[in-house]
Design a protein around this nucleic acid. Sequence first.
DNA 1: TATGAATGAGACTTCATTCAT
DNA 2: GATGAATGAAGTCTCATTCAT
Lengths: 226, 226, 226, 226
Amino acid sequence: MSDTPSAATRAPAPGRAAFDRDEQRRRKREAVLRVAASAFNRRGFANTSMDDVASVLGVSKPTLYQYFKSKQELLYACHQVAMDNGEAGLALAAAHDGTGLEKLIIYLRRYMEGIFGDLGNCPVLTDVDSLVPEDRANVVARRKRISAATKELIALGVADGSIGPCDPKLASLFALGVVNWIPAWYRDSGPNTPEEIMESFAALLISGLAAPAAPKRQRAKAKPKA
Amino acid sequence: MSDTPSAATRAPAPGRAAFDRDEQRRRKREAVLRVAASAFNRRGFANTSMDDVASVLGVSKPTLYQYFKSKQELLYACHQVAMDNGEAGLALAAAHDGTGLEKLIIYLRRYMEGIFGDLGNCPVLTDVDSLVPEDRANVVARRKRISAATKELIALGVADGSIGPCDPKLASLFALGVVNWIPAWYRDSGPNTPEEIMESFAALLISGLAAPAAPKRQRAKAKPKA
Amino acid sequence: MSDTPSAATRAPAPGRAAFDRDEQRRRKREAVLRVAASAFNRRGFANTSMDDVASVLGVSKPTLYQYFKSKQELLYACHQVAMDNGEAGLALAAAHDGTGLEKLIIYLRRYMEGIFGDLGNCPVLTDVDSLVPEDRANVVARRKRISAATKELIALGVADGSIGPCDPKLASLFALGVVNWIPAWYRDSGPNTPEEIMESFAALLISGLAAPAAPKRQRAKAKPKA
Amino acid sequence: MSDTPSAATRAPAPGRAAFDRDEQRRRKREAVLRVAASAFNRRGFANTSMDDVASVLGVSKPTLYQYFKSKQELLYACHQVAMDNGEAGLALAAAHDGTGLEKLIIYLRRYMEGIFGDLGNCPVLTDVDSLVPEDRANVVARRKRISAATKELIALGVADGSIGPCDPKLASLFALGVVNWIPAWYRDSGPNTPEEIMESFAALLISGLAAPAAPKRQRAKAKPKA
DNA sequence: TATGAATGAGACTTCATTCAT
DNA sequence: GATGAATGAAGTCTCATTCAT
């Protein structure tokens, strides 16, 4: 095999080869994370053994340690993905030029998309105690910022009149509860598509929060830039 | 019996003694459950060892086994308390003579009271896999009934016009998410009292669900921006 | 009840009362031993908990400790009963005026009677390691004496011509194996009565050991003094 | 592949390596079984901890679980070896063309060889209760078959006149008692070799069972007292 | 890079035994 | 004398992690 020149397709150029290796490694690492996140969500972090994850992937346990230094690091990675989703939503909201309510809905939609996505992670989010102290501090701080930003968005809406008067802190916990509880009941095989769920929940949140004056329900579609 | 005076000093009242023992046993069993539920909620079922529970109570580990046959039985007891709360709420709603929306709110208020109560347990609820198969089937069936009843309540509200048009299934998941997520963030030492939270959430649910046309009761006091 | 003079029958004389108490205590102690021995034989010493014994007797666990200082003492008592049976058989054999073979059979019959009796104990006998060191030494020494006496009986038979030439040591292990294995298969509900079994085994041992000259089988009945 | 000389040093023979691993694994598994059987026989199943077994082997406790799923599976393996021996003896007997008595002795000799062999196990055999229900049923059924076959062999001997008239059932229990009790007293360091014991026991069984009329083979060398 | 094997730490659970009533 | 409650010690088993190949 290796003496045929056509084999060159495998290692066309030294730099390319290295790139391929890195790329493949990155893909495998993501596969591990995806499977682990799914298992953590379904059965809980502590109920999921590294053996479980390995056997789903069809590899041996030690292989996992080539991509993640420890089980806790896997959990940390899950947290990061979730927080990335949250922050991506916040960024989208910040970029949107509209009312506080619109921004809030844009943000939560993006957040829900993450939950329905490959790494839908939320029950996991509860498990902060299983993290290494350093990671835990990191996560707690970052989540506090996201939480605060959610509250800010609502306060903004109250200020600009798009959201009815309410305690922004409690209203944000209300909204996040709706969203964070999704993984507790959502199943791919269930009767509703993610789109239906997002649509429906967005509508309920809007009518729940919107200021009473204007006619509601009609504004349900809050896609940015419509 | 009662004619020998010395008998009184020796065994004050035979029935009483037995009663006291039973009563004390009941109290201790409940204390174990309370501590365990709290720990399960805070750190998760699998992350909580029987040693943890025992040491909080200041007893040795085997003592716990006098009150619960296994750790799984403790978890099952938690589930039962939660489901009792849900069913109590449903009973209250059924007894109330009013619109579907009113019934729904009565039910959810009672449910929240349970969560804020001594055994407030919900994150635990997610952990159905850790139950013994028989108990699991039991819990799943009972929860399905509660879930269905919640949906019925909403369907009733839609039918009688108190609740705006919506998918009752998704709306019930919306409402239960709000409520079930409470234990994930609520702390006794937090800034808000359970009453404030219940009030606030009930209001948000009402305005979110209420049919747009009809006058909204709770909304009365919230009219600054008109 | 207690104010009627006829109650005197309960405590007729001070000495008698004490006797009754002792007698009752003795009886209870024996009941405990009987139940324990039976359970030990059926499930093995280590597989039998004090709770098992207590629940069969319908008493609480601590009550057992009023009659036996420890579980090991119960086992020791079992050993003693078994050895008493063996020694009783040896005494009977010594008292019999006849051939070595006759003496041997008399001894083994008595031994088997013990096994079929209330405290039938033999699997237990194997468990010497579970005894307290002091008791263990005691038991080992006493059993060695019984074992040696069995061998002597056979040697005597070989010498007086009633038993064919053989290694008395091995022949005694042969005979004791037959007998000691009985509890491993005998059930009260089985098809054969203890008498049938004893009769049959005695006959087989006799024909197996008897000197070849005389016609065998006919002498099967080896009841002493016939 | 084979044209690069350096390949040979790296992976001498892919098939061979796998074979070696499997072979070594098989050997280790057998070592675990050997040590466990010996300990179970000496001290009893319940008195033997996995730590005991592990420390004799010089490995850590969890290592044992790589070869046997549970302690009960180890016990089951012991039972299987014993039953394999019994069945091997029965097969040998069936293949032999001779009288019922001859077949019986052939069978029992083979059985005894198993007992004296590396995994000599019999006291363990008593412990059927410690097995998992499924295994227990399996063992009980298989042992019943072996037991029945033993009885058949004796019935055959009675029918062909090689064995004197007797109850085949009781006679088989007699013979199996002799044999099964061996591990209770046999020690490698004892005065008699396995061969001597087998020879002696076979002779005693033959003279015990043989029909009185027929000439007895083994008896030839034992004729001092005539 | 990937894997079979090994292990230290720790979890649940049982049980003989004691204590207070 | 009898019992309910409590406990220290020990046993089985699991699992994250490492090592040698």
